[in-house]
Simulated scan of single mutants.
Amino acid sequence: MADEHLLGLSTCPDRALAEEIAGELVERGHAACVNIVPGLTSVYRWRGETHRDEEVLLLMKTTRQAWPALQATVLELHSEELPEIIAVPVTGGLSDYLAWVTYQTSPDIASKKED
């Protein structure tokens, strides 16, 4: 069961955008839970220049089935030209928690907004 789960990572330029994206992902059933982690500094090259930006990290718990919709929602709402959207396979975890992630992101349940 664990191989169907993903941990999504995305950074946002500020808390307000992170809150908006996280809320929509959970409300739409694309993620069972999104953690918002403030205080991140990203160092990267973009268009030939090195940047250092304060950002907010989103940790998005989802499934492979829900991933395409999650990615589309982040792209729809994100303010950056090329937002970070990465999926990391979950290779283990508490089986009851992973079952809850599956339940919360299943198409039938997500539309009912239960639990």
Rank of each mutant, 00 (worst) to 15 (best):
A87T: 04
E55C: 03
G93L: 06
E27M: 11
I36E: 03
P89Y: 08
T73W: 03
R28K: 10
E114H: 14
L98G: 02
A18L: 07
L59Y: 07
A69D: 06
N35A: 04
T105L: 06
E27T: 13
I85T: 09
L6M: 07
D3S: 05
I36R: 00
G92I: 00
A87N: 03
V90T: 08
T63V: 00
H5A: 01
K61V: 02
H30I: 02
L17T: 10
R15V: 06
V74I: 12
L58C: 02
C33F: 05
E114Q: 15
T102W: 08
Y103M: 11
G39E: 05
I85V: 14
V37Y: 05
N35F: 04
Y44E: 13
G23Y: 08
L70E: 04
P83M: 10
V43R: 12
A72M: 09
H51V: 09
L75C: 11
L75I: 08
L82G: 11
S106C: 12
N35H: 01
E19H: 06
T62P: 06
L82M: 15
L7F: 00
T11A: 12
E81A: 15
G8M: 03
P83I: 08
L94E: 15
I86F: 02
T105C: 07
L7C: 03
R15G: 02
E27G: 11
L82R: 14
G92S: 03
D96M: 13
E20G: 09
R45W: 10
P68E: 05
L7S: 01
R47K: 15
W46L: 13
D108I: 11
G23S: 08
L25H: 03
L17C: 08
E114N: 14
S10H: 02
I21T: 06
G48H: 14
T91P: 05
G39H: 01
G29P: 06
W67G: 00
G92P: 01
A2F: 10
V101I: 11
I109M: 13
C33W: 05
R45E: 15
I36Y: 05
P83Y: 09
L70C: 09
H51D: 03
V88R: 04
A87C: 09
L77F: 00
R45T: 15
K61D: 04
P68Q: 00
R15C: 06
T50H: 10
H30E: 09
E27R: 13
H30L: 01
H78P: 07
G93Q: 01
R15S: 06
T41V: 11
T73K: 02
G23N: 10
A31W: 04
L59Q: 01
L75P: 11
E49A: 15
D115S: 15
G23E: 12
A2I: 05
G29K: 01
D108G: 14
H51S: 11
L59G: 07
L7E: 04
A69T: 05
D115I: 15
R28Y: 02
P38Y: 06
D3V: 00
G48V: 12
H78C: 07
G29H: 01
T102N: 11
A110Y: 00
